[in-house]
Write a protein that binds this DNA or RNA. Structure first.
Length: 479
RNA sequence: GGCCUCUUAGUAUAACGGUUAGUACAACGGGUUUUCAUCCCGUCAACGCGGGUUCGACUCCCGCAGAGGUCACCA
């Protein structure tokens, strides 16, 4: 089995088209086949500098390594269509010799006139109805058209099932443009054949062109590969396919948001595909083992960021628990708040160790860990408005904090001892956990939420913790 | 407009003629010595419509509606 991902370098890879890379990759790996990356850069006007690198970066991030293509090379080198002109021209000459292709002398303006005429009379426009009787010999500067042989066509699509189409959708499509470069319609057929691609996996937008492709395969004497049409991914609100026009984010844009590639691959693979079980979390190896083209959904699927976020949280927990904090830590390095810059990696790892199960994305570290690295600004309203604390006066609260500070000062400073001290404090003061722990927690962090109190104290350390309690005691006294 | 495709809760999906239509996310409620999160328990919520076929239809057939795709010297 040989599959390929064949993007055109017109920009970044977005959520809406990355499944055309994931599915061919998964099935190729499962069958111990070959996954090819081919760059379809035949449209010079749409070429974007650096887009190829963006594509490679996306595949690398998701872990979709290609066996043949740019950088790695392969038996069908080159893998850029712009460098394969001679190959397309050789196949074009064969068609001309067989009487199945001809030069098109009609100007684009004239074609537009024909098109308008048809529209005015309510007829579908087909170029073959205007085919010139004595076309000139083909030479550079003239487009080359396929001489179609319209007839009923039947074919099978692994996802869509048995399909058919009538002659009315088959036309004399352009094979080579006036600039000498081939169209997608011609180039992909030649390339897939030359490269030995057995399974063509691409978006459903190509479905209506398949009858023309079938005619071309026939005229070229080439076998038709297995055809697989992937339904579109829809935007979160609209009903149209996700595209860059309606703010589809790049896949790697989610990397900057703190999404893990494991989660992204997991989510995307399962958007419109399932193995029939109720499993939700899949590793790449599990996806490779379980994937099947036949179980790809026939209808489009909406991209739902909420579930991606949930899966990402699951993956963060899974990886930290499996690998340990130290191993996972390097992946978090660019996500810490600025105030963490002066902290040691060891200290950041300690913070990560008690906060990771609250993260939905790695970038949550930026907003959730500030008080571990710098003294938070005192905001007494967080105390006075707290639903457990508002019934106490400032002096009661400051006395409570004073007692807590004194006891903690006597305590050994490790998580277990701190928990024991807190429990003892609870018994001695007769306060409810919601009261005692809330005032201490807020005094330490002034954050809406934080890890368990004994763990927070343990990581902050004795001197920082006590200093923070004391400045709040002072603030309460002066209130 | 022609041609083609699709249609189960808000979202992603399971079901391959017989189920109280299952699961996950979200939402809502509850539990786990503070908060938030995790984890656990629970609640709400779906077969687009109309005809057939059949003892029986989400499942098969036909029609309709809605949505999408495509009709480029773009891919």
């Amino acid at each position: 089995m040989k599959t390929r991902f064949a993007p055109s370098p017109t920009g970044y890879i977005h959520i809406g088209n990355v499944r055309s890379a994931i599915y061919p990759y998964l099935i190729a790996r499962q069958q111990h086949g070959t996954f090819i990356l081919r760059i379809e850069d035949t449209d010079q006007s749409r070429y974007v500098e650096g887009a190829t690198e963006l594509i490679e970066d996306t595949l690398n991030w998701l872990g979709l390594e290609w066996d043949e293509g740019p950088i790695v090379g392969g038996p069908a080198t080159p893998y850029f269509q712009s460098e394969r002109k001679a190959i397309y021209h050789a196949w074009a000459e064969k068609l001309i010799a067989a009487g199945r292709a001809y030069a098109d002398p009609t100007s684009p303006d004239q074609i537009q006139v024909y098109r308008d005429q048809c529209q005015a009379s309510g007829q579908p426009f087909l170029y073959r109805n205007f085919r010139p009787e004595n076309p000139p010999a083909w030479h550079p500067g003239l487009p080359l058209r396929f001489k179609s042989d319209p007839k009923p066509r039947k074919w099978h699509d692994v996802v869509m099932g048995d399909l058919s189409a009538g002659p009315e959708v088959q036309d004399d499509i352009i094979l080579i443009k006036a600039d000498g470069l081939p169209t997608y319609n011609f180039a992909h057929i030649v390339d897939d054949s030359e490269m030995g691609v057995t399974h063509v996996i691409r978006g459903v937008e190509y479905l209506s062109s398949v009858p023309n492709y079938l005619a071309l395969y026939e005229a070229l004497g080439l076998p038709v590969p297995v055809l697989v049409s992937l339904p579109h991914i829809l935007g979160p609100t609209g009903t149209k396919k996700l595209s860059k026009r309606d703010n589809a984010k790049s896949v790697t844009g989610y990397r900057e948001d703190g999404i893990l590639p494991e989660a992204m691959l997991n989510y995307l693979a399962c958007l419109g595909w399932n193995d029939g079980t109720e499993q939700e979390i899949y590793t790449k190896d599990e996806l490779i083992a379980r994937f099947s083209l036949e179980r790809i959904q026939t209808s489009g699927a909406r991209f739902d960021e909420t579930k991606l976020l949930w899966q990402n949280g699951q993956w963060i927990r899974k990886l930290v628990q499996e690998q340990g904090v130290e191993t996972f830590y390097p992946r978090t390095e660019s996500f810490w708040p600025g105030s963490a810059a002066s902290a040691t990696p060891e200290y950041r790892q300690q913070v990560l160790g008690i906060i990771y199960d609250r993260l939905k994305t790695l970038s949550d570290l930026r907003t959730m860990t500030g008080y571990f690295f710098a003294d938070p600004e005192i905001d007494l309203t967080m105390i006075t408005d707290n639903k457990f604390l508002k019934r106490f006066s400032e002096s009661e609260l400051s006395q409570l904090l004073q007692t807590a500070a004194d006891r903690l000062d006597q305590s050994a400073w490790d998580a277990d001892s701190l928990q024991a001290t807190l429990n003892q404090l609870l018994a001695d003061t007769g306060k409810k956990p919601a009261e005692l722990f809330s005032i201490i927690r807020i005094a330490l962090s002034f954050a809406p939420f934080s890890p368990a109190l004994h763990l927070t104290l343990n990581v902050l350390g004795r001197s920082t913790s006590l200093a923070r309690l004391r400045r709040v005691i002072t603030a309460l006294e002066n209130a």
